[in-house]
């Protein structure tokens, strides 16, 4: 029996904090509070076990260990207290998956209308996986994918289906 194209696993130990603000004005304060450099458009910066992703011109996503979420939320809210800004714990709103393996790209290529092969190493691409909105970035050995938790079952099923053994995209 052939092997699956990639290993799909749901990640349960990551917290996520959504930050909405005028990044030109509040960017430095956010970077300092988050402990990460501000990502460029379409990029994600990573240091240790924290990542800060560029989601839109006025939105960032901080991904960090779940246990650090409450404290980071307080630090960010304090740092942005004088700004017109939103800092929100969205850990329970989102589901995160890891797609690990040499052919992880094949799995995503079947589901997303995006050229993920051309995505920079530190890129963050928001797109759709079949019918569900998602965000994708690279991790060592594969990709991380986030989506809404309300469609987590759906995402898990389509990822597993796209990784089914013997369904690689390369010519046989």
């Amino acid at each position: 029996m052939a092997e699956a194209l990639a290993t799909i696993s749901q990640v349960q130990d990551r917290g996520m904090i959504q930050i909405r603000a005028d990044l030109a004005q509040a960017g430095d304060a956010i970077a300092e509070a988050a402990g990460l450099a501000l990502p460029e458009q379409g990029r994600i910066t990573t240091d240790g076990n924290r990542s800060l992703g560029w989601m839109s011109p006025d939105e960032l996503l901080l991904v960090l260990p779940l246990a650090e979420t409450a404290e980071a939320l307080a630090v960010l809210q304090d740092a942005l207290a004088t700004e017109h800004a939103l800092v929100l714990d969205v850990s329970d709103m989102r589901a995160m998956f890891r797609i690990q393996g040499a052919r992880a790209l094949d799995v995503l290529a079947k589901l997303c209308p995006a050229d993920l092969a051309a995505m920079p190493d530190d890129g963050l691409r928001r797109t759709r996986a079949a019918q569900a909105a998602c965000g994708i970035w690279r991790e060592p050995g594969g990709y991380a994918l986030i989506g809404f938790r309300s469609v987590a079952d759906y995402l898990r099923a389509i990822l597993a289906g796209a990784a089914a053994p013997g369904t690689g995209l390369d010519p046989r």
Partner: peptide, 12 residues
């Protein structure tokens, strides 16, 4: 023009 992504029609 906001995020620079070349989006395919079904993403829009």
């Amino acid at each position: 023009p906001y995020c620079g992504i070349a989006a395919e029609e079904t993403e829009l």
